[in-house]
Amino acid sequence: MITEYLKKLYETIRSVAGITVVLAIVVAILSSIFRGPYIIVNTVVTGGMLALMSIGLALVFGVMNVAQFAHGEYFMIGSLTAYYTFIPIERYLGANPNAALSFLAPLVSILAAFCMGALMGVLSEKLIFYNLRKRSRTNWVMNSFLLTVGISVLLVNGHQLIFGTELKGIVRYWTGRPFCIMDVFVSRDRCYAFILSVLVIGLFWLFMKATRTGRAIRAVSQDETGAQMVGIDLSGIQVLTMALSCGLAGIAGASLLFMFPSYPSVGLDPLYMSWFVIILAGMGNVLGAVVGAFMVALLKVLTMEYIGSGWDFVVPTALIMLILIFKPNGIFGSDVRGVLEQ
């Protein structure tokens, strides 16, 4: 029994995915020994939020075959919603302090951001993707990708038109002394954001594995026609997927409001990063996206550490291009590649 497990583990480690993951862990440990443990802490904290973004992207890929270019804009919507929810509550708290409410206020604004993101997701599915799907499905992947480009232009400039270009940010969500982990001071916000992202990913995983709806989503991602045959409501699943994906991006935007103040094109950087993740992990591979997020985060932190800030954009891009050339379906592989190649 145990030998069988060990054999299986050995097989996994010997695959490309296993080698890369092990290599990443070794590099992370080595660099934190030489440069200090803050590298691991930074990687983990950045990776958590990146995972939230990339899960949504991978999900939309897998289920709807939409290559989302506007994913960063849902991040922006999330941060904007959180800002306009949090500021009034904070003002109210300034007048009459309340310990419980001041702990809950950020959570309330993050929840509001999730709802707003999901709402926008539903709207864009109902108003835009549904119409294109109804009219023509030829060359769907490319056409829907260009549609999301249009959505992105629309939302970025809509933000500029209605809310202006100034930075709408907050100093912190939770007041209090920063936590001290492995001799590194991590602010409360980053810590709670990481815990939140782990919680949300866990919930999401449970939803996908344990509920009927989650199973239906996975069924649609495997085979659309087959799923329809066994009586799954396809359009309902598509709306739900879009809502979930955009909602997750909204959560990421809201819980990082203290790092990324909201302005029209704030979503660009998270968008690039989450694209790196899903190319690295394989398009449409949701579980792979979680692991990939931490690897990209590590790469980013290491480049910043050894080469200098600013290059943290060039080096990952070059690496992702190499992956695209030599292993286009990612290190964890993906089932949807055949569809995306149209």
Binding site: I128, L147, G150, S152, V153, L154, N157, Q160, L161, P264
Partner: peptide, 12 residues
């Protein structure tokens, strides 16, 4: 930004 909104809308 209104002109770019029209841009995006027209593209869609």
């Amino acid at each position: 930004g209104l002109n770019l909104i029209l841009y995006g809308l027209l593209l869609i």
